[in-house]
């Protein structure tokens, strides 16, 4: 530790450039990464309309659903757990919401979505916190169970949603010039940021993630914290599922497929430690925006989806390695 700090000081003193004291390389690299990649795309893709307000709004819209999931994921990872089931929860929620809207109408539809998240979150949370199965295994299993269930009850077919109020509310509508999706994501970020930084609950999440024994000795019920964290992640994922349903005007088991990895990448890019104890919702937001930015830029650059995956993987590894290297 001290050797590290010393080396860092020496590197800064001798290296010619000096970072301000408040700047923590590892934590704040997301801001640099975001600006650098933004500038690169702005220069290279300026003629392809990258800088048009329409495209910038697109990036925000395309990042919005991941951002909602990633807010929940930040709590989980800061708590030193993981949730691999979020993508499947989103898919299952889109299906349950669509079916309930078709059968009973708008309000039962929204309730069905929320209940789906609550049930899955309670199962995940109970298995992690009280049965003490590692969250990696619990949510890996839940990933398959939730996706399989969604596919089974719909016989693999999409369920259309024709309720305009629902689609307008969740994802398809606009508030003035701002897409509804972006409003939802900003709302999630605001609530998440206050909860993690400024409430006792958030403090307990960080403490439990950093040193569970110390948290216990400070009187924190760490099991209850773990349960609630898994619950939060599932609820965020089910909100994401409803946003998918509203935006794509249907429920389908494939909505959200693979989002767990994008969300985890966004959280890690945002400087939240996989080992737990540190986490920032605002940085997670930039992590999600960076993922959206990269996708958008690569599409504009004319890369096909296989090439996009390769570049995206390289950028993530580079960013995380850079953050660790210091």
């Amino acid at each position: 530790m001290s050797v590290d700090a010393q080396e860092r000081q020496e590197a800064q003193a001798g290296g010619g450039f000096q970072l301000p004291a408040w700047f923590d390389w590892r934590r704040d690299i997301i801001f640099i990464g975001f600006v650098v990649i933004f500038l690169i795309f702005a220069i290279l893709l300026g003629d392809q309309g990258f800088m048009s307000s329409q495209n910038l709004l697109n990036i925000a819209r395309q990042s919005a659903i991941i951002m909602v999931i990633a807010v929940g994921m930040t709590f989980v990872i800061a708590n030193a757990e993981i949730d691999l089931s979020v993508g499947s929860i989103a898919g299952l929620t889109s299906v349950s919401t669509a079916m309930a809207i078709a059968a009973f109408g708008l309000v039962p539809g929204i309730l069905a979505g929320l209940v789906t998240g609550a049930i899955v979150g309670a199962v995940n949370g109970a298995l992690v916190a009280y049965v003490r199965i590692p969250s990696f295994l619990v949510t890996l299993a839940m990933m398959g169970v939730a996706a399989g269930f969604a596919q089974w009850i719909t016989s693999s077919a999409p369920i259309p949603i024709i309720d305009d109020t629902f689609t307008g509310l969740f994802g398809s509508g606009n508030i003035g010039p701002i897409p509804g999706l972006v409003v939802w994501s900003l709302l999630a970020v605001a609530v998440g940021a206050v909860a993690l930084n400024r409430t006792r609950f958030g403090r307990k999440v960080l403490a439990t993630g950093s040193n569970r024994t110390a948290a216990e000795y400070s009187g924190i019920n760490t099991r209850a914290i773990k349960f609630r964290v898994m619950m939060i992640s599932a609820m965020a994922a089910s909100l994401a599922g409803m946003l998918y349903a509203g935006r794509l005007q249907s429920g389908r088991f494939q909505w959200g497929d693979g989002d767990e990895l994008t969300a985890i990448a966004a959280v890690i890019l945002g400087g939240t430690a996989l080992a737990g104890g540190r986490g920032s919702i605002v940085r997670t937001m930039f992590g999600a925006l960076l993922m959206g930015l990269i996708n958008n830029g690569l599409i504009l650059a004319g890369l096909d989806s296989s090439q996009q995956q390769i570049i995206r993987g390289i950028i993530i590894v580079l960013a995380v390695a850079l953050a660790r290297g210091r």
């Binding site: 006792r200 960080l206 040193n211 110390a214 948290a215 009187g219």
Partner: peptide, 28 residues
Amino acid sequence: FQEFSLVPSLTVAQNIYLDQEPLKWRLI
């Protein structure tokens, strides 16, 4: 404690008041 029971990623003040934080408008 002999083996220290602090949370390394929180500040000194945050550790001292862990789970006893002073609140203002219900926020820390």
